[in-house]
């Protein structure tokens, strides 16, 4: 890694102050599992001058239920989320998403906020030493259009109509399906509005803004959630496609549904058409089949990723069935 300064922030205000002082030339570090990989490979066009360590800020590592909500501190490790009895029982999509992320070691290091703030894994973007100056780096084109796009978007492109990278998080679709809110040093944002695509950007955070807490309201009576991931390997692997669903049912009929796919588009992809297809029906092989078909109706697969459409369709079906 190239040289950089390392600053331990003792309070949130101090961390924000450091970020302002460096004006975009500093990065936050917590678990470090994503940011250090990027710095080692030197994939960032402007190498950070400083890393601001927020692990030294007390009071950001907690899981608690209060005021009718589940609150999870930004620094909470994924392994702690995966093992937490309340999350497993009441917010199972989130517990399962955490359990299926990376490897046991990475889950002991990586935090929930770091997971939703992680950068894309497109192999052109991540190629060491900025070998491919792609759109997401402010360059001229997306190399996945003509290149190997087997793990790229099946729902079209963005960033000047070009970038085809997908969002790699397992946690993100679970938070969207559970209608979580993300509290930052500035504001509270609904999880589904948190993700945004831009040059070197995967979320709406300002340069001096830090995620502090995830908040999820108690699930309504009769609701269930599930998360399903398809990856080439059982462990240490990013999703080929994943899907989280929350279904609220009453007397066997679906009253409300939230279904979100990820790794299929530049940001987590909520499939409202699939939700509509299941509302008012009972969960059965036929009704989930319709939801699966609706979920991928708008799919525009590339030369090498048509197979992902089938997987996305099947995961939507299975996620809804798992909520039955």
């Amino acid at each position: 890694m190239k040289r950089f300064a390392h600053l331990n922030a003792r309070t949130l205000d101090e961390a924000v102050l450091y970020l302002r002082r460096y004006g975009g030339r500093a990065k936050i570090i917590a678990g470090g599992t994503d940011v250090l990989g990027r710095m080692k490979d030197e994939i960032v066009p402007t190498y950070p001058e400083a890393l601001i360590n927020i692990k030294t800020i007390p009071g950001l590592d907690f899981i608690e239920e209060r005021e009718g909500s589940l609150k999870i501190g930004a620094l909470t490790k994924l392994e702690d989320i995966a093992r937490h009895p309340v999350i497993k029982a009441k917010f199972s999509a989130l517990a399962e998403a955490a359990r299926r992320t990376a490897s046991p070691h990475i889950r002991e290091m990586g935090t929930i906020a770091g997971n939703i703030c992680q950068d894309i894994r497109c192999w052109y973007y991540r190629a060491p030493n900025n070998r491919f100056p792609c759109l997401r780096k402010g360059g001229g084109r997306c190399y996945a259009i003509e290149g190997d796009n087997r793990y790229h978007s099946i729902f079209g492109a963005s960033v000047d109509g070009g970038c085809l990278a997908v969002h790699p998080s397992d946690i993100a679709p679970a938070l969207i399906a559970l209608d979580a809110k993300i509290r930052t040093s500035e504001r509270k944002i609904k999880a589904e509005h948190f993700f945004e695509v831009g040059v070197c950007k995967t979320n709406v955070l300002e340069e001096d803004e830090i995620v502090t807490e995830i908040e999820i309201s108690q699930p309504p009576v009769g609701s269930k959630s599930a998360f399903i991931k398809f990856a080439a390997r059982e462990t240490i692997d990013f999703p080929v496609v994943n899907c989280a669903a929350t279904i609220v049912g009453s007397e066997g009929t679906v009253q409300a549904a939230r279904i979100c796919l990820n790794a299929v588009y530049l940001k987590p992809y909520r499939v409202t058409s699939a939700e509509q297809a299941i509302i008012g029906k009972t969960i059965s092989d036929n009704s989930v089949e319709d939801a699966g078909i609706e979920a991928v109706r708008q799919a525009k697969p590339l030369a090498r990723n048509t197979y992902m459409v089938q997987i996305a369709r099947t995961l939507v079906k299975r996620a809804v069935l798992a909520c039955g």
Binding site: H6, T33, N53, I106, E108
Partner: peptide, 13 residues
């Protein structure tokens, strides 16, 4: 007490 990959831990931390 936790297993970690030491390649992704900064020595200062």
């Amino acid at each position: 007490g936790k297993p970690v990959t030491s390649c992704l831990v900064l020595a200062v931390q």
